[in-house]
C-alpha cells in the first residue's frame, strides 16, 4: 500500500511568514465557495482568498503572505486558536497545496489538528510567550527551521520548543496513513462488531 503513504516530515528549513491574528477560522483559511473544487485541481490559490485579495480581485499588499520577499513560504506562524470552526479538510488542503508544511500557534481547533496530521501538515504548539518572540523573529529573518524529532523551531538566533501529540508525531515522522494501521486490526474490529450486535440490538436503526 505504498501509494497511500504521505510524505514523511523530519526537518524543514524554509521561508516563513507571520500572521498576527487570533482565531483564524477555517472559513478564512478557505472560503466556503471553494469547497466544491476537486482536490485534483489544487486549492493553493484559494488559501486565505478573501484576506489575500480585495473585492476587485487585486492582491492586498499589506497581507503578509503577499510580501514578494516571502515567496515559496512553507512555515506559517499564527497565534491563538488557529483553524477553529468548520471541519472542512479543504482548509488543510489549501495550506498544503500552497506549499505550507508547518503551522505554529498557541492552540489549534481540534478537528483542524486532526485533519493536519492526515495530510502531513505539522501543527506545532508553542507557548504564548514564545509565539510573540517567534512572530517577531520571523518578521525579521523571513525564515524558520522546524525539527520535528527534536520538537524545536529556530528563526535567526532564537530557538523555541514546541509540543505535538506523540502519536501524531510518530505518524508525521513516518508518513503513515492511519487506514493501513487500522487494517492490521481487521480481526479485532470484526469480533467487536459481532459481540456488539448481540449486546446492543437496539443500537441498529429500526424501520
Amino acid at each position: 500500500m505504498q501509494q497511500f503513504k504521505m510524505q514523511p516530515f523530519k526537518k524543514l528549513d524554509g521561508v516563513a511568514v507571520s500572521l498576527r491574528r487570533d482565531n483564524v477560522d477555517t472559513d478564512q483559511v478557505i472560503p466556503a465557495r471553494y469547497l466544491k473544487v476537486p482536490r485534483a485541481e489544487g486549492l493553493g490559490d484559494t488559501l486565505f482568498r478573501d484576506l489575500r485579495y480585495d473585492a476587485n480581485g487585486n492582491l492586498r499588499p499589506d497581507f503578509p503572505l503577499n510580501d514578494p520577499a516571502r515567496k515559496g513560504v512553507s512555515v506559517l506562524i499564527g497565534r491563538k486558536n488557529f483553524g477553529v470552526g468548520s471541519s472542512r479538510e479543504a482548509a488543510v488542503y489549501a495550506l498544503v497545496d500552497y506549499g505550507i508544511r508547518c503551522v505554529v500557534a498557541t492552540s489549534f481547533g481540534d478537528i483542524f489538528a486532526g485533519n493536519a496530521v492526515n495530510n502531513g501538515l505539522v501543527a506545532a504548539i508553542v507557548t504564548a510567550e514564545d509565539i510573540e518572540k517567534l512572530l517577531s523573529a520571523v518578521e525579521q529573518t523571513g525564515r524558520a527551521e522546524v525539527d520535528l524529532e527534536e520538537q524545536t523551531i529556530k528563526s535567526g538566533n532564537y530557538v523555541v520548543p514546541f509540543t505535538i501529540d506523540p502519536a501524531r508525531k510518530v505518524r508525521l515522522l513516518n508518513g503513515w496513513d492511519d487506514l493501513d494501521l487500522t487494517k492490521q486490526y481487521a480481526r479485532e474490529i470484526e469480533a467487536f462488531a459481532a459481540k456488539d450486535k448481540a449486546a446492543r440490538p437496539w443500537a441498529v436503526p429500526a424501520g
Binding site: 471541519s87 472542512r88 479538510e89 479543504a90 488543510v92 478537528i111 486532526g114 485533519n115 492526515n118 495530510n119 492511519d178 487506514l179 487500522t182
Partner: peptide
C-alpha cells in the same frame, strides 16, 4: 470529523 476520517 474531516474528509480523511470520513473515508476511514
Amino acid at each position: 470529523i474531516g474528509a480523511s476520517e470520513v473515508s476511514h
